[in-house]
Design a protein around this nucleic acid. Structure first.
Length: 272
DNA sequence: ATTGGAACCTGGTGGC
DNA sequence: TGCCACCAGGTTCCAA
């Protein structure tokens, strides 16, 4: 389900229920995820207390008392939910952590693009160590973006989706942020003016914050396996609306493919 | 070095 | 109904 707002929603939803709990046991039904689940993982985390849950980009980091941490990514279709101990096991329920509060932290992922890794230095892990800046921090500024785009000729949409530049901006919110900024997704990155970077940075922050706020509205139901982060109820201006009228000017929204990802924009509002 | 495309998987949808 | 092609929220890897 995840772009950054969805992962943040999962983190906030789980936090109060898993912090302080002890992992009694781990069941791995399907170890073949994006990377194989370490055979030793169940043994390494057995009887360990969960101290923290953090987010870096779209990764969740569950810190344990042993100084080990679990690094979890939800890929395209992953879910991490708390379910009652007697919850029936579904086809794609790959990993269960049984907790001391009699709940199961259950990882479900039909496409298996996600991963569950164990590390004693999670932020130094090769998958995390070269990640770009967090978009909702003060350091993500127009000047930062401007500096990172110099001499880059890739489309601006590709650039803001590059996790080495800035993390957490997935396909949906990239489309939305560019529309809100009135910037054409195919603009060569290095052609953006500093003032356009300012608008874009503002709109990225704004759309992510709004989405997190919406995700938050479903947090109260989180335990009931039905916690659908507010993904589909998002107020989307362009994503999934190709062929329909632009809310701003009424023109037909167009769809193209950039890096094989659906890209929807308004040919009238978003000038090349 | 930069860039675009394939690859990893399964499930849902729409066309014929 | 059945079959098949194509699409989907991500990210790494490989080759031009």
């Amino acid at each position: 389900m995840p772009e950054l707002p969805e992962v943040e929603t999962v983190k906030r939803g789980l936090m109060p229920h898993i912090a302080g709990q002890i992992i009694h046991s781990t069941t791995v039904r399907q170890p073949k995820l994006r990377w194989p689940v370490d055979k030793n993982l169940p043994r390494l985390i057995k009887n360990q207390r969960i101290l923290s849950i953090e987010r870096r980009g779209k990764y969740l980091i569950i810190g344990l008392a042993s100084s080990y941490a679990l690094i979890i990514h939800l890929g395209m279709s992953g879910q991490l939910r708390l379910v009652p101990a007697n919850q029936p096991v579904g086809k794609h329920d790959h990993v269960d952590l049984s907790l001391s509060n009699d709940l199961i932290l259950r990882y479900t992922d039909p496409r298996r693009f996600g991963c569950i890794l164990i590390s004693d230095q999670p932020y130094e892990h090769v998958l995390l160590s070269s990640l770009g800046i967090e978009p909702l921090t003060r350091g993500f500024t127009a000047q930062y973006l401007f500096n990172r785009m110099q001499r880059k000729h890739i489309p601006i949409k590709s650039l803001i989706m590059d996790s080495k530049i800035v993390v957490g901006v997935g396909n949906i919110y990239a489309n939305e942020a560019l529309f809100n900024s009135k910037i054409h997704p195919l603009r060569p990155s290095a052609s953006l003016l500093l003032t356009e970077c300012q608008t874009l940075v503002n709109e990225i922050k704004s759309v992510l914050k709004a989405a997190i706020k919406q995700g938050g509205t479903t947090l109260k139901d989180f335990i009931s396996a039905e916690g659908k982060p507010g993904y589909f109820s998002q107020q989307l201006n362009v994503y999934g609306r190709h062929g329909q009228a632009c809310y701003e000017c009424g023109a037909d929204l167009k769809e193209i493919r950039i890096n094989n990802r659906s890209t929807v924009y308004c040919p009238s509002c978003q000038l090349s």
